[in-house]
Design a protein around this nucleic acid. Structure first.
Lengths: 146, 146
DNA sequence: ACAAAAGTTAACGTTGACGTTAACGTTAAA
DNA sequence: TTTAACGTTAACGTCAACGTTAACTTTTGT
């Protein structure tokens, strides 16, 4: 078990097979191992990872290009460790790690800014609600004066 | 003063004239008064309103269709009061107000849910940062043991 | 008064993010 | 073993959200 075909993944993640292959093509989603017949075999980790991708896309409104950036830092290094066993030079790895640190900080800063903006939008909506309710009250009072 | 042409608006809001006309065509942005020559004359309120639209689009990742929905509640009723002087029947107005209340509540619920998800994404990013830093430490220790 | 700058509508072009169809090979249950 | 269900690649279609160009009118500084 712990082996899923593309249709299972599509169903659980709420997207189509076409989209999954498209994401793989773009490098948004890692290419899984294949069966002898060339069928893509996914693991549970793949599914969880794809779910995160969809959340980032939906909630943050990321484009696919931005997703590549985002994923290259957030949890991609876990997947990369398992997917590609890329043995690079020590210096290369070091600079890659430093780059990850920087990207992570940028992502954190960005998401905090977004949260703040969303909070002020929430506040505004609540104020609008108060004003609307006041208006409705007045509206009904006028009606009872006729 | 307090009169702006489309290029002023475009510059201040960081979009193109084409986009402004397109938004007007879609009903996302109210059609302003025209000069005798047919030129669109905007007020400061228009600019502030458009800025809000752009924020909602960028931060919430709304599509233009969703924006129409969003705007029909948030602050649209202010603009509508000034733009269209639609005198409808009392019953009609009442049901419209009730509908606004409901939409407002839905929007507030939705934005709160998004904020929560973004917070958990932020937490995750911070945890990743901690793990990454730990890994880098170990990485450098191994290097000094050679 | 007039040229340049800025405005207009109209219509076709582009890009991103998939959907759909075709033409074909593979797997699994009867 | 065969056939339905499922898989594949390849290529064209689609829709939203603008960009771009063309052909034209209006406004404005000198």
């Amino acid at each position: 078990m712990d082996e899923y075909k593309i249709d299972d993944v599509a169903r659980e993640c709420g997207i189509t097979k076409r989209t999954i292959r498209y994401y793989e093509e773009l490098g948004v989603f890692p290419a899984p191992d294949r069966s002898d017949g060339g069928i893509r075999i996914y693991s549970r980790e793949h599914i969880d990872y794809l779910k995160k991708i969809m959340t980032a896309k939906d909630i943050l409104g990321f484009s696919l290009q931005e997703l590549v950036q985002y994923l290259s830092v957030s949890d991609a290094y876990k997947m990369h460790h398992k997917t590609y066993h890329d043995v690079k030079s020590r210096e290369e790895q070091k600079s890659k790690l430093a780059h990850m640190q920087q990207m992570l900080d940028e992502q954190i800063t960005m998401i905090r800014a977004k949260i703040e903006k969303m909070k002020s939008m929430e506040t505004e909506l609540e104020e609008t609600k108060v004003r609307l309710n006041a208006f409705i009250l007045k509206f009904n009072e006028e009606a009872s004066q006729s």
